[in-house]
Nucleic acid binder design. Structure first.
Lengths: 250, 250
DNA sequence: CGGTATCGTGCAAAAACGTGCAGAGTCAAG
DNA sequence: CTTGACTCTGCACGTTTTTGCACGATACCG
């Protein structure tokens, strides 16, 4: 294994998992921890990552002019992305919501997957360019600045032409009594519209969303088919949402 | 085995595996490591690969997971971007085509500009997020992989709702007799549709496009209102396109 | 505040590198 | 056919880079 290969491997790992643990990687690659530490030192010197005790994390926003918001992947979001990516079957047509978690789903798609992905997030669309076998459809409309997805009446109208097998939706609040909610009314409309048209609807849920409630309802528990969480938070999610009869994927 | 054969073999290997280990290859081919090293030196000299300790890796692009999308901006494209950005008046609604030059237009927009930008490029849309005052509309549709813009019947149909004051369009060929052309028929349809709906249409032209002709016509000189070039190539453009009566902005 | 994991540095072995040189093969002129 | 120039290849030798280990210092965690 070349030094360069290790470097790219480390950067890929960083993008996928949101962090690097020196010890783990050294065992995976069969080299000493010293070597990994030296690599991390070099990459940090080159401004490609930030060293921390025990390993490394991505740089904080400043350096990346483009996908500043999308590239900061927390380990939990990476884990959710991995699980959600596993739910997509070859040949399916899938709607992918916007947000950092959705980008993580893309990062964990099996290489060579053949599928069709519909999205209203330009970030997700760009990330999907790395997957040769995936056909991408973008939903047009006005781009919301804070969440970087299209929305509004035109977007909802455009959605009418799709009937995806599966949709993966982000949300701000998942509450056993109050249902699934988000903080932006236009976004809520889009999410609601696509859930209604999808064969199956899954909610991408990081731990801080569990038990929370936001201002606008996206769906009730009857409307959706599953919640995707990180393995670490699965037990918590199951306990909280047991009454809803909703499946938990982790 | 001929030297030439080894060279092509090495380049093939590089494409397949993403890296070359001198020792391994020398054993596989039954030649000494010195020979492989000499080959690598020659190929590196010819700019076909990058030598590293232990072997070789592809030049920049393919290997680095990052800059696949943040494509390299040549000084000329940056210059064109600067000129084109200056053509946009506050308050206008502008259609921006895809491509690296269009991203450069965004990079040179005056900070604080208030305007509406319509685009079918997710890259351009993401780049525009840096401009608080710009409202962004994305044109939906199927995403073409090689140029990273949406196109097809749905995209053209969607365009019907816009009447921008100005459109900035990329092209592959600008020829005084053959008009403005591009190499992809679907893209040509989109460009033609938006030019027809715009108050003014400008073509973004880097020097290698001047005098060139591609397979699909976008527009005749009657249809467009100006060509944007870098200051260095303005004289050349004026000479070449004088008969068309088309304004040159530089 | 103590224990443990991680880090940095110096060092030596191993791997890879560059260079000079000689043998083998090729080719064209004589 | 011979000769000399040229190229390609492999080997030897000294240099540089990389790697793993030892040991003291430092940072996290309960």
């Amino acid at each position: 294994m070349l030094t360069q290969d290790r470097h790219t491997h480390l950067l890929t790992l960083l993008r996928q998992d949101g962090s690097i643990v020196a010890k783990t990687v050294s065992q995976d690659l069969g080299v000493s921890e010293d070597t990994i530490r030296r690599d991390l030192r070099a990459l940090a010197q080159a401004g490609q990552l930030k060293r921390v005790h025990g390993g490394a994390v991505p740089l904080a926003a400043a350096n990346a002019p483009f996908d500043a918001r999308t590239s900061i992947a927390t380990p939990e979001k990476a884990a959710i992305g991995r699980v959600a990516a596993g739910l997509i079957e070859p040949g399916q047509t899938v709607f992918l919501d916007g947000g950092t978690t959705a980008v993580q789903v893309v990062a964990h798609l099996p290489p060579g997957l053949r599928a069709t992905v519909i999205t209203h997030s330009p970030n997700v669309a760009v990330a999907l360019m790395a997957h040769e076998g995936v056909q991408v459809e973008i939903v047009g409309g006005r781009l919301l600045r804070h969440s970087v997805v299209t929305s509004g009446a035109a977007t909802v109208a455009w959605l009418a032409r799709y009937r995806p097998d599966l949709c993966l939706i982000g949300a701000t609040g998942l509450h056993p009594g109050q249902g699934i909610t988000t903080g932006e009314s236009e976004e809520a409309e889009v999410k609601r519209a696509i859930i209604a048209r999808s064969g199956a609807a899954m909610i991408l849920a990081s731990s801080e969303k569990l038990g929370a409630v936001a201002a606008f309802e996206i769906a009730t528990w009857r409307d959706i088919d599953g919640v995707v969480t990180a393995p670490e938070t699965a037990a918590h999610a199951r306990a909280l949402l047991s009454a809803t009869g909703c499946a938990i994927h982790a």
